[in-house]
């Protein structure tokens, strides 16, 4: 089985988010970048398929040279080959079209992406890849097994979960659950050394146009002051929630 894991390069979860150039650009100054958490869960599941079922695992990112340390980290975790499509990730469909081409050229059986990236939060790239190449798609995946050509997937739904069956080729929007937090791997020295020698292929983008554009960013308005309520006066809290906030 040939697996491709889509890796989005995102600001670390502790990052304070700022903008530059008249609030039109994300200010990357001083920001640490990491593998998108949903993608790290997916990559870890892919490692299981590699070790238990002899799958090959490639990772791909659509982005500039600045994303290479993130791809190297994925190689250090155990991926075989990294691919970088050398173009800025303009919007969801633009990225999906780049990735669809990589999937088709590489004849991948299974594509694991994340339910959503924590920067753009589009929640659209995996579904779009599937629709573009005519592959099956399951979103919010919390468990994934593959036997031969047939996958059994558990999907999180609002208020529960459902089990689905689909044949390969299959695209997954993954999240925590596809592996547990405790399964995540911190690359060791040997992995990091090996990653330096593994191929990281830079390829040219296909020509296509984005369909959406972030014309401006805004930060949430600073919060008004909190009202503190004495723990001996919980009636006051109920009163405020009822009459002021009108939520009970």
């Amino acid at each position: 089985m040939k697996i491709l894991v889509c890796i989005s390069h995102v600001p670390d979860t502790t990052s304070k988010i700022n903008f530059s150039e008249g609030d039109t650009k994300f200010d990357t100054n001083g920001v640490q970048f990491v593998i998108n958490p949903n993608d790290e869960f997916g990559l870890t599941r892919a490692m299981w398929f590699k070790e238990k079922q002899g799958a090959t695992v490639d990772v791909v990112n659509v982005g500039g040279p600045e994303t290479e340390p993130t791809l190297r980290k994925a190689l250090a975790i155990g991926a075989d080959t990294a691919i970088r499509v050398d173009t800025p990730a303009t919007d969801g469909i633009y990225v999906a079209k780049q990735l669809a081409k990589v999937v088709q050229d590489g004849n991948y059986d299974l594509v694991i992406a994340g339910r959503e990236s924590i920067d753009y939060n589009g929640g659209m790239v995996p579904g779009m890849i599937a629709a573009l190449i005519g592959a099956n798609f399951v979103n919010t995946c919390i468990n994934l097994e593959v036997e031969g050509n047939e996958a059994t997937v558990i999907r999180e739904i609002d208020g529960g979960k459902e089990t689905l069956k689909a044949s390969l080729p299959l695209v997954i929007g993954g999240q925590k659950g596809i592996v547990q937090e405790s399964d995540l791997r911190i690359p060791n020295m040997r992995g990091i050394m090996q990653a330096r020698k593994k191929p990281l292929n830079v390829i040219q983008p296909v020509e296509t146009n984005p369909e959406t554009e972030a014309v401006k960013f805004e930060k949430p308005a600073p919060k008004g002051n909190i009202k503190m309520i004495d723990s001996d006066n919980l009636d006051e809290l109920i009163n405020l929630l009822h009459n002021e906030a009108k939520v009970i």
């Binding site: 939060n121 659209m124 579904g127």
Partner: peptide, 21 residues
Amino acid sequence: ANDKYLAPLLAVHLGAGYASN
């Protein structure tokens, strides 16, 4: 969960730009 599952498929089938959230 269902909206988020179907929207990207619909976007590609319609050639429509999609803004989430």
